[in-house]
Structure formats: structure tokens, C-alpha cells
Amino acid sequence: MTDIQTLHILNKSPDHPRAARCVEMMSAEDGLLLTGNGVLLLARGNLLPGASKVFALIPDVEARGLGDLSGNVSSVDFAEMVTLSLQAQRVISW
């Protein structure tokens, strides 16, 4: 796993104002982890950040029937989510 500068964890739906704020304030070296309603961003591909790595929590993705949408997004389970947050220099929960 390449190192991630800041891991942004987003659980807000794309329509929540904080979702757009989060994506706006990410740099290319950061990672974005989508959980809860945050995984709905996968259904709005145009809003996803271009450069940085995007991860999505599997149970939330499957609950919302978005399993096949996560093309260039890596799906992670709870254990991998913990590893991600340990690796990042900094974690921000939006």
C-alpha cells in the first residue's frame, strides 16, 4: 500500500454540503474512504476526485446495491479500513 498523506473518511451522502467540501479539499496524495451514505458517491461518478485513491466499505456498498459500480474504486472490508487509517499520516472524518 503506497502511503497516504491524509485519509478523508466520508459518510455523508453526495447531496450533503459536506460531501462536496470534502472532495474539494483533497490533494492528489490523499485517500478518500467512503462509508455509510458516503458510498452513494459511487453512483455519481462525475463527483469523484480525479487524482486521489478512492476506497469504499464493502457492506455499505452491497447494502445499497452498488456492487458493480466500483470500477476504479478499491473496495475494503472493516479490517482493511483499520489498516488504511493506521497507514495514513492523518485521518479526517467528515
Binding site: S13, P14, D15, N37, L40, A43, I58, P59, D60, E62, A63, R64, G65, L66, G67
Partner: peptide, 23 residues
């Protein structure tokens, strides 16, 4: 309406989050 339309997507498997699928 809005994000509410996501209730209506097919193949929702909500077991992983211990909920019954709204579908």
C-alpha cells in the same frame, strides 16, 4: 427525490450492515 431515489435501486444486500433491505 434527491438521494432518496437510492431506496429504489435493485439488488440491495443489507445483511452486512445488519439491516433488512428496504427493497
Amino acid at each position: 427525490t434527491g438521494p432518496g431515489v437510492n431506496w429504489l435501486r435493485q439488488t440491495q444486500h443489507a445483511g452486512g450492515i445488519e439491516q433488512k433491505s428496504v427493497e
